[in-house]
Design a binder for these strands. Structure first.
Length: 560
RNA sequence: CGGGGCGUAGCGCAGUUUGGUUAGCGCGCUUGCCUUGGGAGCAAGAGGUCGGCGGUUCGAAUCCGCCCGCCCCGACCA
Protein backbone atom coordinates (compact mmCIF):
# COMPACT_ATOMS: atom_id res chain seq x y z
CA UNK A 1 0.00 0.00 0.00
CA UNK A 2 1.29 3.41 -0.95
CA UNK A 3 0.03 6.90 -0.27
CA UNK A 4 1.27 10.32 -1.28
CA UNK A 5 1.30 13.25 1.10
CA UNK A 6 0.39 15.75 -1.61
CA UNK A 7 -3.19 14.57 -1.83
CA UNK A 8 -3.54 12.73 1.47
CA UNK A 9 -6.42 13.71 3.73
CA UNK A 10 -4.50 15.08 6.68
CA UNK A 11 -3.04 18.22 8.12
CA UNK A 12 -0.62 18.27 11.01
CA UNK A 13 -0.78 20.99 13.63
CA UNK A 14 2.16 22.91 15.04
CA UNK A 15 0.55 23.77 18.32
CA UNK A 16 -1.16 21.70 20.95
CA UNK A 17 -4.93 21.94 20.80
CA UNK A 18 -6.15 23.86 23.82
CA UNK A 19 -8.77 21.29 24.74
CA UNK A 20 -6.34 18.43 25.10
CA UNK A 21 -4.77 17.37 28.36
CA UNK A 22 -3.51 13.81 27.90
CA UNK A 23 -0.38 13.23 25.81
CA UNK A 24 -2.15 10.74 23.59
CA UNK A 25 -4.96 13.19 22.98
CA UNK A 26 -2.60 16.01 22.00
CA UNK A 27 -0.62 13.79 19.67
CA UNK A 28 -3.69 12.24 18.05
CA UNK A 29 -5.00 15.71 17.24
CA UNK A 30 -1.68 17.23 16.18
CA UNK A 31 -0.82 14.30 13.94
CA UNK A 32 -4.25 14.55 12.36
CA UNK A 33 -5.30 11.01 13.22
CA UNK A 34 -8.65 12.13 14.62
CA UNK A 35 -10.92 15.17 14.71
CA UNK A 36 -13.52 15.85 17.32
CA UNK A 37 -17.15 15.98 16.23
CA UNK A 38 -18.77 16.43 19.65
CA UNK A 39 -17.85 15.70 23.24
CA UNK A 40 -16.69 12.08 23.34
CA UNK A 41 -17.30 11.61 19.62
CA UNK A 42 -14.54 11.61 17.02
CA UNK A 43 -14.00 11.04 13.35
CA UNK A 44 -11.03 8.94 12.33
CA UNK A 45 -9.10 10.49 9.47
CA UNK A 46 -7.13 8.12 7.23
CA UNK A 47 -4.06 7.98 9.48
CA UNK A 48 -6.07 7.14 12.59
CA UNK A 49 -8.33 4.86 10.62
CA UNK A 50 -5.39 2.80 9.47
CA UNK A 51 -4.15 2.37 13.03
CA UNK A 52 -7.61 1.33 14.17
CA UNK A 53 -7.88 -1.24 11.38
CA UNK A 54 -4.47 -2.70 12.19
CA UNK A 55 -5.44 -3.10 15.82
CA UNK A 56 -8.68 -4.74 14.76
CA UNK A 57 -6.76 -7.16 12.57
CA UNK A 58 -4.60 -8.29 15.48
CA UNK A 59 -7.65 -8.74 17.69
CA UNK A 60 -9.43 -10.63 14.92
CA UNK A 61 -6.51 -12.96 14.29
CA UNK A 62 -6.23 -13.92 17.94
CA UNK A 63 -9.98 -14.36 18.40
CA UNK A 64 -10.18 -16.50 15.27
CA UNK A 65 -7.18 -18.39 16.61
CA UNK A 66 -9.14 -19.68 19.60
CA UNK A 67 -12.14 -20.59 17.51
CA UNK A 68 -14.10 -17.37 17.81
CA UNK A 69 -16.66 -16.78 15.08
CA UNK A 70 -16.97 -13.19 13.93
CA UNK A 71 -20.42 -11.74 13.43
CA UNK A 72 -22.07 -8.33 13.37
CA UNK A 73 -24.99 -7.45 15.55
CA UNK A 74 -27.17 -4.40 15.10
CA UNK A 75 -26.27 -1.18 16.86
CA UNK A 76 -29.86 -0.08 17.24
CA UNK A 77 -32.18 -2.49 18.96
CA UNK A 78 -35.68 -2.66 20.37
CA UNK A 79 -36.35 -2.06 24.05
CA UNK A 80 -38.09 -5.36 24.63
CA UNK A 81 -35.04 -7.52 25.26
CA UNK A 82 -33.61 -4.89 27.59
CA UNK A 83 -36.82 -4.80 29.56
CA UNK A 84 -36.67 -8.58 30.00
CA UNK A 85 -33.26 -8.40 31.69
CA UNK A 86 -34.22 -5.31 33.64
CA UNK A 87 -31.42 -3.25 32.17
CA UNK A 88 -33.74 -0.88 30.31
CA UNK A 89 -34.04 0.86 33.68
CA UNK A 90 -30.81 -0.20 35.41
CA UNK A 91 -28.58 1.20 32.67
CA UNK A 92 -30.07 4.62 33.19
CA UNK A 93 -29.00 7.65 31.22
CA UNK A 94 -25.84 5.96 29.98
CA UNK A 95 -27.98 4.20 27.45
CA UNK A 96 -29.14 6.39 24.62
CA UNK A 97 -32.82 5.74 24.06
CA UNK A 98 -34.79 6.81 21.04
CA UNK A 99 -38.07 6.24 19.31
CA UNK A 100 -38.68 5.36 15.69
CA UNK A 101 -41.42 6.90 13.51
CA UNK A 102 -43.95 4.51 14.97
CA UNK A 103 -43.05 5.68 18.47
CA UNK A 104 -41.46 2.34 19.34
CA UNK A 105 -38.72 2.38 21.97
CA UNK A 106 -35.20 1.63 20.80
CA UNK A 107 -31.70 2.11 22.14
CA UNK A 108 -28.21 2.33 20.74
CA UNK A 109 -26.35 -0.66 22.11
CA UNK A 110 -23.98 0.18 24.96
CA UNK A 111 -23.14 -3.55 24.94
CA UNK A 112 -24.72 -6.61 23.39
CA UNK A 113 -25.51 -9.32 25.95
CA UNK A 114 -29.24 -8.97 25.37
CA UNK A 115 -28.99 -9.31 21.62
CA UNK A 116 -26.45 -12.10 21.43
CA UNK A 117 -28.29 -14.13 24.07
CA UNK A 118 -31.56 -13.71 22.24
CA UNK A 119 -29.90 -14.84 19.03
CA UNK A 120 -28.28 -17.84 20.68
CA UNK A 121 -31.62 -18.91 22.07
CA UNK A 122 -33.03 -18.88 18.55
CA UNK A 123 -30.11 -20.57 16.80
CA UNK A 124 -28.72 -23.07 19.30
CA UNK A 125 -31.02 -25.84 20.41
CA UNK A 126 -28.77 -28.69 21.54
CA UNK A 127 -25.89 -29.23 23.94
CA UNK A 128 -24.15 -30.85 20.98
CA UNK A 129 -23.64 -27.39 19.49
CA UNK A 130 -21.81 -26.18 22.59
CA UNK A 131 -19.48 -24.65 23.54
CA UNK A 132 -19.68 -21.67 21.26
CA UNK A 133 -17.64 -18.47 21.05
CA UNK A 134 -18.79 -15.55 18.92
CA UNK A 135 -17.52 -12.01 18.70
CA UNK A 136 -17.89 -8.75 16.85
CA UNK A 137 -15.82 -5.61 16.38
CA UNK A 138 -18.26 -2.82 16.34
CA UNK A 139 -19.33 0.64 17.40
CA UNK A 140 -20.90 1.03 20.81
CA UNK A 141 -22.66 4.06 22.19
CA UNK A 142 -22.76 5.05 25.84
CA UNK A 143 -23.91 8.48 26.82
CA UNK A 144 -21.13 8.96 29.38
CA UNK A 145 -21.68 11.82 31.79
CA UNK A 146 -18.09 12.89 31.36
CA UNK A 147 -16.12 11.84 28.30
CA UNK A 148 -12.44 12.72 28.54
CA UNK A 149 -8.87 12.44 27.34
CA UNK A 150 -9.48 12.02 23.63
CA UNK A 151 -10.07 8.36 22.85
CA UNK A 152 -9.77 7.20 26.45
CA UNK A 153 -13.30 7.81 27.61
CA UNK A 154 -15.68 8.11 24.69
CA UNK A 155 -19.38 8.12 24.10
CA UNK A 156 -19.05 6.50 20.70
CA UNK A 157 -16.29 3.91 20.53
CA UNK A 158 -15.25 0.66 18.94
CA UNK A 159 -15.20 -2.45 21.03
CA UNK A 160 -14.46 -6.06 20.38
CA UNK A 161 -17.10 -7.88 22.36
CA UNK A 162 -17.18 -11.66 22.54
CA UNK A 163 -19.65 -14.05 24.13
CA UNK A 164 -19.42 -17.73 24.92
CA UNK A 165 -22.14 -20.28 25.58
CA UNK A 166 -21.77 -23.47 27.60
CA UNK A 167 -23.64 -26.31 29.24
CA UNK A 168 -21.36 -26.52 32.27
CA UNK A 169 -19.05 -24.42 34.41
CA UNK A 170 -15.88 -26.32 33.49
CA UNK A 171 -16.43 -25.58 29.83
CA UNK A 172 -16.96 -21.91 30.64
CA UNK A 173 -13.77 -21.86 32.66
CA UNK A 174 -11.83 -23.43 29.80
CA UNK A 175 -12.99 -20.83 27.30
CA UNK A 176 -12.50 -18.06 29.82
CA UNK A 177 -8.87 -19.06 30.25
CA UNK A 178 -8.36 -19.35 26.50
CA UNK A 179 -9.69 -15.86 25.98
CA UNK A 180 -7.51 -14.61 28.82
CA UNK A 181 -4.44 -16.02 27.08
CA UNK A 182 -5.56 -14.65 23.71
CA UNK A 183 -5.87 -11.20 25.28
CA UNK A 184 -2.35 -11.51 26.64
CA UNK A 185 -1.13 -12.30 23.13
CA UNK A 186 -3.08 -9.39 21.65
CA UNK A 187 -1.64 -6.83 24.04
CA UNK A 188 1.81 -8.38 23.80
CA UNK A 189 1.81 -8.10 20.01
CA UNK A 190 1.07 -4.40 20.35
CA UNK A 191 4.07 -4.02 22.62
CA UNK A 192 1.98 -2.95 25.58
CA UNK A 193 2.98 -3.66 29.13
CA UNK A 194 -0.06 -4.61 31.16
CA UNK A 195 -1.39 -6.36 34.23
CA UNK A 196 -4.16 -8.92 34.42
CA UNK A 197 -6.01 -8.15 37.62
CA UNK A 198 -8.91 -9.48 39.60
CA UNK A 199 -11.77 -7.04 39.20
CA UNK A 200 -15.32 -6.04 39.89
CA UNK A 201 -17.88 -7.43 37.45
CA UNK A 202 -19.95 -4.28 37.92
CA UNK A 203 -23.38 -4.21 36.38
CA UNK A 204 -22.52 -6.73 33.69
CA UNK A 205 -22.99 -9.31 36.38
CA UNK A 206 -21.35 -12.59 37.22
CA UNK A 207 -19.15 -13.63 40.08
CA UNK A 208 -15.62 -13.13 38.86
CA UNK A 209 -13.86 -11.05 36.29
CA UNK A 210 -10.42 -9.99 35.17
CA UNK A 211 -9.36 -6.62 33.87
CA UNK A 212 -6.45 -5.99 31.55
CA UNK A 213 -4.83 -2.80 32.69
CA UNK A 214 -2.20 -0.85 30.83
CA UNK A 215 -0.24 1.35 33.25
CA UNK A 216 -0.57 4.99 32.23
CA UNK A 217 -0.51 8.42 33.82
CA UNK A 218 -4.01 9.24 32.67
CA UNK A 219 -5.37 5.91 33.81
CA UNK A 220 -8.71 5.89 35.55
CA UNK A 221 -8.27 2.56 37.28
CA UNK A 222 -6.26 2.15 40.45
CA UNK A 223 -4.56 -1.17 40.91
CA UNK A 224 -2.99 -2.58 44.07
CA UNK A 225 -0.22 -5.09 43.73
CA UNK A 226 2.14 -7.06 45.87
CA UNK A 227 5.66 -7.38 44.49
CA UNK A 228 6.39 -10.26 46.83
CA UNK A 229 3.73 -12.76 45.77
CA UNK A 230 2.28 -11.21 42.62
CA UNK A 231 -1.18 -10.39 44.00
CA UNK A 232 -2.93 -7.78 41.84
CA UNK A 233 -6.45 -6.37 42.11
CA UNK A 234 -8.27 -3.18 41.23
CA UNK A 235 -9.15 -0.84 44.05
CA UNK A 236 -12.73 -1.99 43.64
CA UNK A 237 -12.05 -5.53 44.83
CA UNK A 238 -8.65 -5.36 46.46
CA UNK A 239 -8.53 -6.60 50.04
CA UNK A 240 -5.76 -6.08 52.50
CA UNK A 241 -4.74 -6.36 56.09
CA UNK A 242 -4.62 -2.95 57.66
CA UNK A 243 -1.24 -2.46 59.29
CA UNK A 244 -1.16 -2.86 63.07
CA UNK A 245 -1.31 0.28 65.17
CA UNK A 246 1.49 1.57 67.32
CA UNK A 247 1.12 0.15 70.77
CA UNK A 248 -0.68 2.52 73.05
CA UNK A 249 -1.81 1.80 76.60
CA UNK A 250 -5.57 1.76 76.81
CA UNK A 251 -6.85 4.61 78.95
CA UNK A 252 -9.82 4.01 81.18
CA UNK A 253 -13.06 4.35 79.33
CA UNK A 254 -14.22 7.94 79.62
CA UNK A 255 -16.52 10.40 77.95
CA UNK A 256 -14.54 13.43 76.81
CA UNK A 257 -15.63 16.86 75.64
CA UNK A 258 -14.84 17.26 71.93
CA UNK A 259 -16.50 20.52 70.98
CA UNK A 260 -17.30 21.02 67.29
CA UNK A 261 -15.28 17.93 66.42
CA UNK A 262 -17.49 16.04 64.07
CA UNK A 263 -14.83 14.98 61.58
CA UNK A 264 -12.19 12.33 62.11
CA UNK A 265 -9.51 14.98 61.58
CA UNK A 266 -10.97 17.20 64.32
CA UNK A 267 -11.35 14.40 66.83
CA UNK A 268 -7.85 13.15 66.14
CA UNK A 269 -6.47 16.62 66.76
CA UNK A 270 -8.48 17.43 69.87
CA UNK A 271 -7.67 14.11 71.54
CA UNK A 272 -4.10 13.92 70.19
CA UNK A 273 -4.69 10.41 68.94
CA UNK A 274 -3.91 8.94 65.50
CA UNK A 275 -6.88 8.80 63.13
CA UNK A 276 -6.56 5.03 63.08
CA UNK A 277 -7.63 4.95 66.74
CA UNK A 278 -10.97 6.51 65.90
CA UNK A 279 -13.85 4.32 64.87
CA UNK A 280 -15.68 5.93 62.00
CA UNK A 281 -19.41 5.24 61.93
CA UNK A 282 -20.94 5.64 58.48
CA UNK A 283 -24.73 5.67 58.40
CA UNK A 284 -26.37 4.40 55.23
CA UNK A 285 -29.66 3.17 53.95
CA UNK A 286 -28.98 -0.11 52.16
CA UNK A 287 -31.81 -1.82 50.31
CA UNK A 288 -34.28 0.30 52.29
CA UNK A 289 -32.87 -0.68 55.70
CA UNK A 290 -30.66 1.37 58.03
CA UNK A 291 -27.06 0.32 58.59
CA UNK A 292 -24.20 1.61 60.66
CA UNK A 293 -20.87 0.76 59.09
CA UNK A 294 -17.82 0.92 61.34
CA UNK A 295 -14.52 1.61 59.62
CA UNK A 296 -11.07 2.42 60.90
CA UNK A 297 -10.77 6.20 61.05
CA UNK A 298 -7.88 6.50 58.60
CA UNK A 299 -9.74 4.94 55.71
CA UNK A 300 -12.92 5.23 53.69
CA UNK A 301 -15.75 3.05 52.59
CA UNK A 302 -15.21 1.89 49.00
CA UNK A 303 -18.23 2.58 46.84
CA UNK A 304 -17.75 -0.36 44.52
CA UNK A 305 -17.60 -2.74 47.44
CA UNK A 306 -20.79 -1.18 48.75
CA UNK A 307 -22.40 -1.59 45.35
CA UNK A 308 -21.75 -5.30 45.54
CA UNK A 309 -22.97 -5.58 49.12
CA UNK A 310 -26.22 -3.71 48.44
CA UNK A 311 -28.19 -3.56 45.25
CA UNK A 312 -29.08 -0.02 46.25
CA UNK A 313 -27.65 2.26 48.93
CA UNK A 314 -27.10 5.85 49.89
CA UNK A 315 -25.82 7.91 52.78
CA UNK A 316 -28.36 8.78 55.46
CA UNK A 317 -29.42 12.35 55.81
CA UNK A 318 -28.78 14.15 59.11
CA UNK A 319 -32.49 14.07 59.71
CA UNK A 320 -32.66 10.30 59.34
CA UNK A 321 -29.75 9.92 61.74
CA UNK A 322 -31.48 12.14 64.27
CA UNK A 323 -34.67 10.16 63.88
CA UNK A 324 -32.79 7.04 64.92
CA UNK A 325 -31.94 8.74 68.17
CA UNK A 326 -28.35 9.43 67.13
CA UNK A 327 -26.42 12.66 66.81
CA UNK A 328 -24.91 13.46 63.38
CA UNK A 329 -21.17 13.97 63.71
CA UNK A 330 -21.02 12.15 67.03
CA UNK A 331 -22.46 8.82 66.01
CA UNK A 332 -21.15 5.78 67.79
CA UNK A 333 -22.16 2.17 68.09
CA UNK A 334 -24.42 1.12 70.90
CA UNK A 335 -26.55 -1.91 71.45
CA UNK A 336 -30.26 -2.13 70.82
CA UNK A 337 -31.12 0.44 68.24
CA UNK A 338 -34.41 -0.64 66.82
CA UNK A 339 -34.04 -1.94 63.28
CA UNK A 340 -30.39 -0.94 62.88
CA UNK A 341 -27.80 -3.41 61.67
CA UNK A 342 -24.17 -2.75 62.59
CA UNK A 343 -21.53 -3.86 60.09
CA UNK A 344 -17.91 -3.87 61.20
CA UNK A 345 -15.26 -3.49 58.51
CA UNK A 346 -12.29 -5.81 58.78
CA UNK A 347 -9.96 -2.82 58.88
CA UNK A 348 -10.82 -2.74 62.59
CA UNK A 349 -9.59 -6.31 63.09
CA UNK A 350 -6.31 -5.44 64.69
CA UNK A 351 -7.39 -2.36 66.58
CA UNK A 352 -7.43 -3.19 70.30
CA UNK A 353 -9.08 -0.04 71.60
CA UNK A 354 -10.34 3.17 70.13
CA UNK A 355 -12.55 6.22 70.22
CA UNK A 356 -16.23 6.18 69.35
CA UNK A 357 -18.88 8.82 69.10
CA UNK A 358 -20.88 9.26 72.32
CA UNK A 359 -24.19 9.82 70.54
CA UNK A 360 -24.28 13.11 72.36
CA UNK A 361 -23.39 16.46 70.88
CA UNK A 362 -19.73 17.43 71.38
CA UNK A 363 -18.73 14.20 73.15
CA UNK A 364 -16.68 11.12 72.24
CA UNK A 365 -15.78 8.10 74.33
CA UNK A 366 -12.11 7.06 74.57
CA UNK A 367 -10.67 3.80 75.76
CA UNK A 368 -13.33 1.58 74.28
CA UNK A 369 -12.20 -2.01 73.75
CA UNK A 370 -13.09 -3.09 70.23
CA UNK A 371 -14.24 -6.35 71.69
CA UNK A 372 -16.94 -4.52 73.59
CA UNK A 373 -18.41 -2.87 70.54
CA UNK A 374 -21.56 -4.61 69.40
CA UNK A 375 -21.89 -5.61 65.75
CA UNK A 376 -23.96 -7.92 63.63
CA UNK A 377 -21.48 -8.89 60.94
CA UNK A 378 -17.89 -8.39 59.85
CA UNK A 379 -17.66 -7.06 56.29
CA UNK A 380 -15.06 -5.95 53.77
CA UNK A 381 -16.17 -2.58 52.46
CA UNK A 382 -13.12 -0.49 53.37
CA UNK A 383 -10.96 1.03 50.68
CA UNK A 384 -7.43 -0.35 50.53
CA UNK A 385 -4.62 2.15 50.90
CA UNK A 386 -1.03 1.94 49.80
CA UNK A 387 1.13 0.37 52.48
CA UNK A 388 -1.52 -2.09 53.60
CA UNK A 389 -0.38 -5.68 53.86
CA UNK A 390 -1.03 -8.16 51.07
CA UNK A 391 -3.95 -10.48 51.95
CA UNK A 392 -1.98 -13.49 50.65
CA UNK A 393 1.55 -13.08 51.89
CA UNK A 394 1.60 -10.02 54.12
CA UNK A 395 3.99 -8.13 51.84
CA UNK A 396 3.42 -4.42 51.33
CA UNK A 397 0.89 -3.35 48.70
CA UNK A 398 1.77 -0.62 46.25
CA UNK A 399 -0.54 0.98 43.72
CA UNK A 400 -0.47 2.33 40.19
CA UNK A 401 -2.99 3.85 37.81
CA UNK A 402 -3.79 2.46 34.42
CA UNK A 403 -6.20 2.20 31.55
CA UNK A 404 -8.64 -0.66 31.49
CA UNK A 405 -8.35 -1.95 27.93
CA UNK A 406 -9.99 -5.33 28.42
CA UNK A 407 -12.39 -7.02 30.77
CA UNK A 408 -13.60 -10.60 30.83
CA UNK A 409 -16.53 -11.94 32.81
CA UNK A 410 -18.22 -15.16 33.81
CA UNK A 411 -21.88 -14.37 33.49
CA UNK A 412 -23.48 -17.67 34.30
CA UNK A 413 -27.19 -17.54 33.50
CA UNK A 414 -27.68 -13.83 34.28
CA UNK A 415 -28.98 -13.18 30.75
CA UNK A 416 -30.03 -16.57 29.42
CA UNK A 417 -32.66 -17.06 32.13
CA UNK A 418 -34.63 -13.83 31.76
CA UNK A 419 -34.32 -13.99 27.98
CA UNK A 420 -35.34 -17.63 28.00
CA UNK A 421 -32.36 -18.67 25.94
CA UNK A 422 -32.38 -22.44 26.40
CA UNK A 423 -30.74 -25.53 24.92
CA UNK A 424 -31.66 -29.16 25.36
CA UNK A 425 -29.26 -31.24 27.44
CA UNK A 426 -28.54 -34.95 27.00
CA UNK A 427 -31.68 -35.80 28.93
CA UNK A 428 -33.83 -33.63 26.76
CA UNK A 429 -34.29 -31.01 29.45
CA UNK A 430 -34.41 -27.32 28.64
CA UNK A 431 -31.59 -25.42 30.38
CA UNK A 432 -30.40 -21.83 30.19
CA UNK A 433 -26.97 -21.25 28.63
CA UNK A 434 -24.05 -20.68 30.94
CA UNK A 435 -22.30 -17.67 29.49
CA UNK A 436 -19.09 -15.70 29.48
CA UNK A 437 -18.42 -12.33 27.95
CA UNK A 438 -15.21 -10.70 26.85
CA UNK A 439 -14.51 -7.10 25.90
CA UNK A 440 -11.60 -5.17 24.49
CA UNK A 441 -11.74 -1.41 23.99
CA UNK A 442 -10.33 -1.10 20.50
CA UNK A 443 -10.45 2.70 20.27
CA UNK A 444 -9.06 3.00 23.76
CA UNK A 445 -6.13 0.82 22.70
CA UNK A 446 -5.10 3.49 20.21
CA UNK A 447 -4.63 5.91 23.10
CA UNK A 448 -3.09 3.31 25.38
CA UNK A 449 -0.43 2.52 22.79
CA UNK A 450 0.44 6.18 22.39
CA UNK A 451 0.55 6.73 26.15
CA UNK A 452 3.21 4.04 26.30
CA UNK A 453 4.96 4.81 23.01
CA UNK A 454 5.84 8.44 22.48
CA UNK A 455 8.63 10.94 23.05
CA UNK A 456 8.97 14.72 23.01
CA UNK A 457 8.77 14.79 19.22
CA UNK A 458 5.67 12.70 18.75
CA UNK A 459 4.27 9.21 18.48
CA UNK A 460 6.52 6.15 18.20
CA UNK A 461 4.21 3.54 16.67
CA UNK A 462 5.05 -0.09 17.17
CA UNK A 463 5.63 -1.65 13.74
CA UNK A 464 2.46 -3.77 13.81
CA UNK A 465 0.00 -0.92 14.32
CA UNK A 466 1.76 1.95 12.52
CA UNK A 467 -0.46 3.64 9.92
CA UNK A 468 2.43 3.24 7.49
CA UNK A 469 5.65 1.33 8.08
CA UNK A 470 7.84 3.69 6.13
CA UNK A 471 7.89 7.36 5.24
CA UNK A 472 9.90 8.22 2.14
CA UNK A 473 11.32 11.72 2.00
CA UNK A 474 12.82 12.93 -1.26
CA UNK A 475 15.26 15.84 -1.29
CA UNK A 476 15.85 17.48 -4.64
CA UNK A 477 14.74 15.88 -7.89
CA UNK A 478 14.88 12.13 -7.42
CA UNK A 479 11.68 10.97 -9.06
CA UNK A 480 12.96 7.84 -10.79
CA UNK A 481 14.91 6.42 -7.87
CA UNK A 482 12.02 7.33 -5.57
CA UNK A 483 9.56 5.38 -7.70
CA UNK A 484 11.87 2.43 -7.93
CA UNK A 485 12.41 2.39 -4.19
CA UNK A 486 8.76 2.73 -3.24
CA UNK A 487 7.89 -0.02 -5.70
CA UNK A 488 10.27 -2.44 -4.06
CA UNK A 489 8.99 -1.56 -0.60
CA UNK A 490 5.37 -2.06 -1.58
CA UNK A 491 6.22 -5.35 -3.27
CA UNK A 492 7.78 -6.45 0.02
CA UNK A 493 4.40 -5.90 1.65
CA UNK A 494 5.18 -2.63 3.37
CA UNK A 495 2.89 0.35 3.73
CA UNK A 496 4.67 3.38 2.32
CA UNK A 497 3.95 7.04 2.77
CA UNK A 498 5.73 9.26 0.27
CA UNK A 499 6.13 12.81 1.50
CA UNK A 500 6.11 14.47 -1.89
CA UNK A 501 4.88 17.81 -0.58
CA UNK A 502 6.58 20.94 -1.81
CA UNK A 503 8.06 21.59 1.62
CA UNK A 504 11.52 22.10 2.99
CA UNK A 505 13.18 18.98 4.44
CA UNK A 506 12.93 20.26 8.01
CA UNK A 507 9.16 20.40 7.84
CA UNK A 508 8.98 16.83 6.63
CA UNK A 509 11.35 15.56 9.31
CA UNK A 510 9.33 17.16 12.07
CA UNK A 511 6.09 15.74 10.66
CA UNK A 512 7.63 12.30 10.25
CA UNK A 513 8.55 12.28 13.94
CA UNK A 514 5.14 13.61 14.97
CA UNK A 515 3.12 11.07 13.01
CA UNK A 516 5.44 8.36 14.24
CA UNK A 517 6.36 6.25 11.20
CA UNK A 518 8.67 3.48 12.47
CA UNK A 519 11.09 3.93 9.55
CA UNK A 520 12.16 7.06 7.70
CA UNK A 521 13.99 6.88 4.41
CA UNK A 522 15.62 9.95 2.89
CA UNK A 523 16.59 9.96 -0.76
CA UNK A 524 18.84 12.86 -1.67
CA UNK A 525 19.49 13.95 -5.23
CA UNK A 526 23.12 14.50 -4.34
CA UNK A 527 23.64 10.77 -3.98
CA UNK A 528 20.85 8.54 -5.21
CA UNK A 529 22.93 5.38 -4.98
CA UNK A 530 22.76 5.44 -1.23
CA UNK A 531 19.78 6.26 0.99
CA UNK A 532 19.54 7.08 4.64
CA UNK A 533 17.38 4.95 6.93
CA UNK A 534 16.43 6.23 10.35
CA UNK A 535 14.53 4.20 12.92
CA UNK A 536 12.04 6.23 14.92
CA UNK A 537 12.26 4.13 18.05
CA UNK A 538 16.00 4.09 18.51
CA UNK A 539 17.03 7.11 16.48
CA UNK A 540 19.63 4.91 14.82
CA UNK A 541 20.70 6.03 11.34
CA UNK A 542 22.18 3.80 8.66
CA UNK A 543 23.20 4.46 5.07
CA UNK A 544 22.73 1.63 2.61
CA UNK A 545 22.69 1.19 -1.14
CA UNK A 546 19.23 1.22 -2.69
CA UNK A 547 19.04 -2.52 -3.28
CA UNK A 548 19.69 -3.27 0.39
CA UNK A 549 16.90 -1.11 1.74
CA UNK A 550 14.14 -3.70 1.92
CA UNK A 551 16.34 -6.27 3.59
CA UNK A 552 17.67 -3.76 6.11
CA UNK A 553 14.17 -2.73 7.12
CA UNK A 554 12.71 -6.20 7.30
CA UNK A 555 15.64 -7.37 9.42
CA UNK A 556 15.00 -4.60 11.89
CA UNK A 557 11.18 -4.73 11.82
CA UNK A 558 10.86 -7.33 14.57
CA UNK A 559 12.57 -4.91 16.95
CA UNK A 560 10.22 -2.07 16.15
C1' C B 1 -25.44 16.69 38.50
C1' G B 2 -21.89 20.04 41.94
C1' G B 3 -17.30 23.22 41.47
C1' G B 4 -13.88 25.87 38.09
C1' G B 5 -12.43 27.68 33.16
C1' C B 6 -13.20 28.82 28.09
C1' G B 7 -16.05 30.28 23.33
C1' U B 8 -13.13 36.34 18.50
C1' A B 9 -10.48 33.61 10.73
C1' G B 10 -8.63 26.46 9.62
C1' C B 11 -5.25 26.33 14.50
C1' G B 12 -3.20 29.16 18.81
C1' C B 13 -4.28 33.87 20.93
C1' A B 14 -4.83 39.66 22.01
C1' G B 15 -8.82 43.11 22.42
C1' U B 16 -13.81 42.75 27.05
C1' U B 17 -11.86 45.54 33.29
C1' U B 18 -13.13 51.57 31.55
C1' G B 19 -18.81 50.62 25.20
C1' G B 20 -16.80 54.68 20.38
C1' U B 21 -12.93 54.65 13.42
C1' U B 22 -12.58 49.85 8.89
C1' A B 23 -11.85 43.89 15.02
C1' G B 24 -6.00 42.75 15.44
C1' C B 25 -1.40 39.33 15.93
C1' G B 26 1.35 34.58 15.09
C1' C B 27 0.92 30.00 12.46
C1' G B 28 -1.53 27.92 8.37
C1' C B 29 -3.74 29.03 3.24
C1' U B 30 -3.32 31.58 -2.14
C1' U B 31 0.16 34.06 -5.90
C1' G B 32 5.15 35.52 -7.20
C1' C B 33 10.47 35.70 -6.21
C1' C B 34 14.09 33.23 -3.56
C1' U B 35 15.53 28.95 -0.78
C1' U B 36 16.12 23.29 -0.08
C1' G B 37 19.14 17.98 5.66
C1' G B 38 15.37 19.62 11.43
C1' G B 39 8.93 23.83 11.42
C1' A B 40 13.65 29.73 6.07
C1' G B 41 13.20 34.92 3.87
C1' C B 42 10.80 38.97 1.00
C1' A B 43 6.38 40.91 -1.39
C1' A B 44 1.25 40.93 -2.52
C1' G B 45 -3.50 38.65 -1.14
C1' A B 46 -7.90 35.74 0.58
C1' G B 47 -10.38 34.50 4.93
C1' G B 48 -14.86 36.93 10.62
C1' U B 49 -23.03 35.76 11.87
C1' C B 50 -16.82 38.15 17.73
C1' G B 51 -21.14 30.66 20.25
C1' G B 52 -26.85 31.89 19.86
C1' C B 53 -31.22 34.77 21.15
C1' G B 54 -33.10 38.94 23.59
C1' G B 55 -32.27 43.60 26.25
C1' U B 56 -29.74 48.52 27.64
C1' U B 57 -27.59 52.51 24.49
C1' C B 58 -27.01 57.53 19.59
C1' G B 59 -23.49 53.35 19.36
C1' A B 60 -22.14 46.50 21.93
C1' A B 61 -16.82 41.56 20.79
C1' U B 62 -17.09 44.89 25.28
C1' C B 63 -22.69 46.12 29.83
C1' C B 64 -27.33 43.00 31.49
C1' G B 65 -30.57 38.43 31.05
C1' C B 66 -31.57 33.63 29.12
C1' C B 67 -29.77 29.58 26.33
C1' C B 68 -26.05 26.41 23.76
C1' G B 69 -21.28 24.18 23.22
C1' C B 70 -16.30 22.61 24.80
C1' C B 71 -12.40 21.53 28.57
C1' C B 72 -10.67 20.42 33.73
C1' C B 73 -11.72 18.53 39.06
C1' G B 74 -15.44 15.69 41.49
C1' A B 75 -19.84 12.52 41.27
C1' C B 76 -20.62 8.65 37.61
C1' C B 77 -18.58 4.59 34.60
C1' A B 78 -17.63 -3.32 31.91
Amino acid sequence: MIAHAKNFFYKTLREDPKDAEAVSHKLLIRSSMIKQIASGIYAFLPLGHRVLKKIETIVREEMDGIGGQEMTMSIMMPAEMWKKTGRWDIYGDDMLKLKDRKEQDFCLGPTHEEQVTTLAGQVISSYKQLPLLVYQIQTKFRDEPRPRFGLIRLREFVMKDGYSFHDNEESLHETYMEVLKAYQRILGRMDLSFSVVAADPGQIGGNLSHEFIVPAKVGESTVFKCDKCGYVATSEVATSVAPALDTLEKPDQAKLHTPNSSSIDDVSQVLSLPKSRIVKAVMVIGDSKPYMILVRGDRNVDESKMNRRFSEWRMMTDEEITNMGLVPGFVGPKAHIEGLTILKDKSLDNVDWGVVGANEKDYHIVGVSLGDIPYDEIVDVGAVVEGDACPNCGGPLSSFTGLEVGHIFRLGTRYSEPLEAFYHDANGERKPFIMGCYGIGVTRLVSAIIEQHHDDNGIVWPWVVAPFHVVLIPIGTVQSSLDELSDSLVKAGLDVFVDDRDERPGVKFVDADLVGFPVRIVVNAKNTDQVEIKFRKTGEVVRVSRNEVVKTILDEAKNL
